[in-house]
Design a protein around this nucleic acid. Sequence first.
DNA 1: TTATTATTACAACTGAGTTGCAAATGTAGA
DNA 2: TCTACATTTGCAACTCAGTTGTAATAATAA
Lengths: 126, 126
Amino acid sequence: MGVIRKTKAVEVLLAAFDTKAVALSAKALIDQLGTTFNKTTIYRVLDKLEDDGVLHSFLGKEGLKWYAKCHGCTSTAHHDVHPHFQCLNCGKVECLAVSVTLPKIPNRKIEVSQLLIQGKCEECFI
Amino acid sequence: MGVIRKTKAVEVLLAAFDTKAVALSAKALIDQLGTTFNKTTIYRVLDKLEDDGVLHSFLGKEGLKWYAKCHGCTSTAHHDVHPHFQCLNCGKVECLAVSVTLPKIPNRKIEVSQLLIQGKCEECFI
DNA sequence: TTATTATTACAACTGAGTTGCAAATGTAGA
DNA sequence: TCTACATTTGCAACTCAGTTGTAATAATAA
């Protein structure tokens, strides 16, 4: 693991999440920054930022991996049932600041859960 | 599209879902039946069965595509908020016969939603 | 049985994500 | 500021689930 270093790649990637303020897919980041940084680097930095609890990840439609800034998650406890909304029209993904009540499931130990809601976002709704 | 034909592949695949009674990943089916049928065939039959509303699909962890028999879904209306449980220990996936109350989201049109719950299943819980 | 149409196998491909390794870079300590 | 060393990066080659084109084969209607 080791300490996280303030490199160009880390800086630029974190900035992307700040300015965009939404979730971003690894692929989108590579499309956008692939000429500046190698795609391997981008994957590895995202991985590390997730390990450190700075970002969290989830799978969007088509199995693409998405990342978003964590708000109130720590690297150890990351059990939040935190829904994501993906627009089927423009593809944008947002984190929803709502909590979800999970169904009761007997005899099973729930560790993580992912709720992905798909539909039309505010802009594409019109 | 056309009518669905009762071929060997369709027969065997449907039988797998009946006997196993759980969700199966495309990959698992190919591992298991790949010597009997070409993987392309398996993907295409699963696709068609989904189109016809016989199976429904969703993404498990690692982005693998899983299929399960539909109960009370039609090919047109497939809007069920139908949670899936995946065991992080043995990898098994089950459909949960529970309904989930979605959070209220203003100004957005919800079309589909997928809730994937991960943890330890009844057998691995012990 | 035949004509028609869907289905299958095969091989080659796609594309997101991974791996190994040598070169480059950041950081702590002198 | 300089040095030593561990971390990070780029590159190229790879993995692997899933897709595509096409010719051959099999299921159905007539």
